[in-house]
Amino acid sequence: MADDEPRISYVERLGRTSMRSVVLVALWIVLAEGDLESLKVGALLAVAAATASVALLPGPLPRLSAWGLARFVAFFAIQSFAGGTDVALRALHPRRPLDPSCLWYDFRLSGHTPRVVFANTLSLLPGTLSARFDGDRLEVHVLDRGASTTRSIAQVEDRVAALFGIVLPMSGEVE
């Protein structure tokens, strides 16, 4: 095991293992379509997976804000329609209108998980594609220089921040 991993107490380890076991058992019940007989195997596997999870990721998992999550899901659904339709029309258009470019975006978000969620969200949303992490900035490939700007990317970052219950500096500026 790595030396830089956070040391956690026995109680914390037990608490996190049980919490993650409960979540995994719930997932098992969904996958087994409510067949509780199968929990004989499922519960055992869930505890084993939770133990492995705490061994690999001992730190606390980032907490999600329920209100942020609801807003994020709605935002994601609407933007997915916009993004899918935009790229479909460009693909089917006789002249195939594209004006791609790359830009560097400075993270306001900190923390590994929020940044990865943000970069992945950008890749799934209209006109943007995360291409490269470099320290505190992210290289973004955009499909249309005119349409995707630092400002629209910052808006996505605000939504991801809200998902984790974080308020970003300067977030008022992008509204």
Partner: peptide, 19 residues
């Protein structure tokens, strides 16, 4: 139809997500 690897990735990720 798209011209390079980056624009093709756009086509795949967005259309697959929504599709």
């Amino acid at each position: 139809r798209f011209p390079d690897v980056y624009t093709r990735l756009h086509a795949l990720t967005k259309a697959d997500n929504l599709g």
